[in-house]
Design a binder for these strands. Structure first.
Lengths: 336, 336
DNA sequence: ATTCGTTCCTAGAACGTTCCAGCGAGTTAT
DNA sequence: ATAACTCGCTGGAACGTTCTAGGAACGAAT
């Protein structure tokens, strides 16, 4: 099946009766060859099934035009980001090398393979790397952290504006007529969670609803959403007409708990999630949620990588992108 | 931040006062260096932050010990398979190069980059490649198709035994006491769907339930599941006490339609899906389903790739792996 | 004393590409 | 007519490794 040896530049050159240098010129589509020679060389290359050897190419040319990307293969949100990165990289004529993390393949390992592939910059969707890791890696290659708030003087950060997301959620609900809006928290020891909680309170304040602020203890999972709703319904006093939640997972849990308790969403109570996970768009969930602008995030990550490679001076190391509100079926005007 | 140039073998050699060849020997951990020299070279390499250049290494050595993997970054099931492949590749001391497909990056493009990276074999989780593509690709490098029934004389196939999956589903329901078991089909023009439908019928027959066979027109989406259940409930005659479905998506739709109609799952009706998607294990779905043996699938794909690289003769080009039944909360004894 | 093996090491040639310098033959400017 | 340039092309060096062949040193066997 597999033919003995893949054809090289030399094979094409010999067949076309020219030098390897000229074939190289033709293959790279740079000036330096006449139209007719160009056509002839291309014809031969096509006929022999020549494929340029990426490794030899970059070994010689010094620069690989390669951006290394680390991501978790078990999380669909990162799939979205990788999709965006591929598109963005193509725009600026860079290639992507992917290195996945799995439960058995940690981030250090993933980064090491990217380094060995001689990527010119790294885009990391990291969860576990430490400041020491960042120091070590960024000493070798520019690093862009995508999607997570990391504070390290040597890395660039492109991430979503969580605060703006919650402002939009609250604005949307207030516009619909809601006043009694609760927030279901994402749990203690979690910086993302506290940023979202604070933003909720600020947003309520901006609408003069400071006295209506109600933060419910919650968490990041469906089960957390279920429990929080049970507590909420058992509590005395007027029920909120709407809830914003830490994320979609807990929102999905909350919705099923509400419906199980005989309340309908959104007629009796509106729900807004966060993240726009794929599950949020499923027919039977149809969750209104805050969606990160993955296209912009990835475009900026790619261009920032390029800037660093080219040594372009960068003003702000951290760029924060406003998300959009994806209005679906779990929000409506309050009853009455 | 980034230091001028990454250290090379020559840098390490100069610093340690030995030849580059010797450093190479030490780095590859092959015999030919004394223990003390080895230690000294390693110390220098560590100190300089030397990382071997993967490209130069394989350019010289001819073989890359690299397996190219193509997968869809937008599908979590493939994430599972990639996870398995990483583990399997490590076992046999190969590295993986990932090339993702996205809506904007087609399979031809993905394969081309893998070829340029000089992978020694390709593991393709393909949906769109044609026989002509397979012919062209497999002429250059061994090809293993993972997870899909492709019939082409030049490629190996490792895939799940869909028929066995449906047999297990039906056996499980019969064992629980069900007799009136329906099957919700995955739609017409779809070879996977018809294999599953036929297997359902065969399984029913083996339990002497040929006269209870009931195939409902369905599809692959949640909406299809919802519609099929509505039709089922509107139809006259006794209701089935259990349904097997084409996949998890349609099963999730079916469940929500059943519950909306006031029926409880599994008390009134049992439901079995197919694929064990991540959504199936969510708390509020908790779907009994047929789960593919991804560990075995990926292990075999990797070793098959290795066999082809090494020219080991292969008896059967297609290997079909039995799936397992993941029993969760949507199946129970029938009422009465 | 010579031969033989081992062990540890090195020189130098590859691998397939790109880059640099340069060359002949036209064309244009002086 | 000469100089200067452009165009199309080529030879050869380089990139960072690994591989092959072999050499120096040393102990053991003859």
């Amino acid at each position: 099946m597999t033919s003995g040896r893949r054809p090289t530049l030399a094979d094409v050159a010999a067949d076309a009766g020219v030098s390897t240098a000229l074939v190289s010129i033709v293959m790279r589509d740079v000036p330096g060859a006449s139209a007719e020679t160009r056509a002839r060389v291309l014809e031969v290359a096509q006929r022999l099934g020549y494929q340029p050897d990426q490794r030899a190419r970059l070994l010689r040319s010094g620069h690989s035009r390669l951006i290394g990307v680390m991501f978790d293969v078990g999380n669909l949100f990162f799939g979205k980001l990788v999709t965006g990165l591929y598109a963005a990289a193509e725009q600026i004529d860079y290639q992507l090398t992917l290195s996945g993390t799995t439960p058995a393949r940690d981030e250090r390992t993933a980064v090491r393979t990217l380094l060995q592939d001689r990527c010119e910059a790294l885009v990391l969707m990291t969860a576990t790397l430490t400041p020491a890791d960042f120091a070590e890696i960024s000493a070798q290659v520019p690093v862009v952290v995508l999607g997570r708030a990391v504070r390290h003087r040597a890395v660039d950060v492109i991430r979503n504006d969580d605060a703006a997301g919650l402002h939009k959620a609250v604005d949307h609900l207030v516009e619909l007529g809601h006043r009694r809006i609760a927030h279901l928290d994402g749990g203690a020891r979690n910086s993302v969670s506290s940023e979202r909680r604070r933003a909720y309170a600020t947003a309520m304040g901006r609408h003069g609803l400071t006295d209506r602020i109600q933060v419910l203890a919650g968490g990041a999972t469906e089960a957390d959403g279920v429990r929080a709703v049970r507590r909420l319904l058992a509590a005395p006093g007027p029920r909120p007409t709407a809830i914003t939640l830490y994320n979609d997972q807990s929102a999905i849990g909350a919705i099923s708990a509400l419906r199980l308790a005989g309340l309908s969403v959104p007629e009796d109570i509106s729900v807004v999630g966060f993240d726009d996970e794929p599950a949020a768009s499923l027919d039977h969930i149809d969750l209104t949620t805050v969606g990160q602008d993955t296209a912009t995030l990835t475009r900026l990550a790619a261009t920032r990588a390029q800037d660093r490679i080219q040594g372009v001076p960068v003003r702000q190391r951290e760029v924060i992108i406003p998300p959009g509100l994806v209005v679906r079926g779990t929000t409506a005007r309050p009853a009455g």
